[in-house]
């Protein structure tokens, strides 16, 4: 026996995504954002997308391109404060934004990934974010019912992958990637390096291969784009 090879060309991998798809996108700020897969989605031009991402990146970076091109109808996120375009699109009604608490977003994805339908929490009770959501009494406390979140696709950035899709992440680029890799029907990974089967020690794997459907080798596409680099923003004091 040997483990299956899931390596795939980028164009083919992203072409799986139809108009109107719901897509999870890893990353918190620059680290962990799959900039190359996002650029391919921009090039292919699928529209009516619902994106789920911690943040809206910054102007000119990552999913901001997809907001600028009008491909995104709805954004489920925790924070868009570093992207003035996202705030403007939301305020002018051109983009529907659903805000989630950050840990709630992670936990909703976890539920979606782990086959649970919903969970009860005291997070957000008494705030706008709990309005319109069912409440349930438990142990004399009023709790919010948060529903599971799943998607058609997940686009994930990894530091290393093997052909089967075992993944390792680096530093704070890990963030939402492990939980998003659990919560989509098709998980497409871009990896900075694709190593041989067995080259990642079994004990060192962050996301096990069965969660992954396609592995795109970034190294085969040339040097990483400037978007992955250190953002030199003005110091706000």
């Amino acid at each position: 026996m040997s483990l299956p090879d899931k390596r795939q060309g980028m164009e083919e991998a992203i072409a799986r995504i139809p108009n109107g798809a719901r897509i999870l996108i890893s990353g918190f700020g620059v680290p962990g954002t799959p900039f190359t897969l996002i650029q391919e989605l921009l090039r292919q031009g699928q529209t009516g997308l619902t994106l789920v991402k911690n943040d809206a990146n910054e102007t000119g970076l990552g999913i901001d391109h997809l907001l600028a091109s009008g491909q995104v109808e709805r954004l489920i996120t925790t924070h868009i404060g570093l992207n003035p375009r996202a705030i403007e699109l939301m305020n002018s009604g051109k983009l529907t934004v659903e805000f989630c608490g950050q840990g709630m977003l992670a936990e909703r994805l976890h539920a979606g990934g782990a086959g649970l339908k919903a969970f009860l929490t005291d997070i957000g009770v008494g705030t706008l974010l709990a309005q319109g959501k069912p409440h349930h009494e438990l142990d004399g406390q009023s709790l919010v019912l948060e529903t599971a979140l799943r998607a058609d696709f997940a686009l994930i950035h990894a530091a290393k992958a093997d052909p089967f899709g075992n993944l390792r992440y680096t530093a704070t680029a890990r963030n939402f990637a492990p939980v998003m890799a659990m919560a989509a029907d098709q998980v497409i990974v871009e990896a900075e390096a694709v190593v041989g089967l067995g080259d990642l020690a079994a004990d060192d794997i962050h996301t096990p291969g069965p969660f992954v459907d396609a592995v795109v080798d970034l190294a085969a596409l040339g040097p990483l784009s400037a978007e992955y680099g250190v953002v030199r923003r003005e110091q706000h004091v």
């Binding site: 620059v30 680290p31 570093l82 950050q102 992670a106 704070t172 939402f176 990637a177 939980v179 250190v230």
Partner: peptide
């Protein structure tokens, strides 16, 4: 380090004994 920021987006160093983890663990 392009992969190492704090939650405000500032690039930071780590102390000896630092740990990295995912968003589920963090919350």
């Amino acid at each position: 380090d392009r992969n190492l920021i704090d939650a405000g987006g500032a690039y930071v160093s780590t102390l000896p004994g630092a740990a990295f983890f995912d968003s589920l663990t963090s919350f």
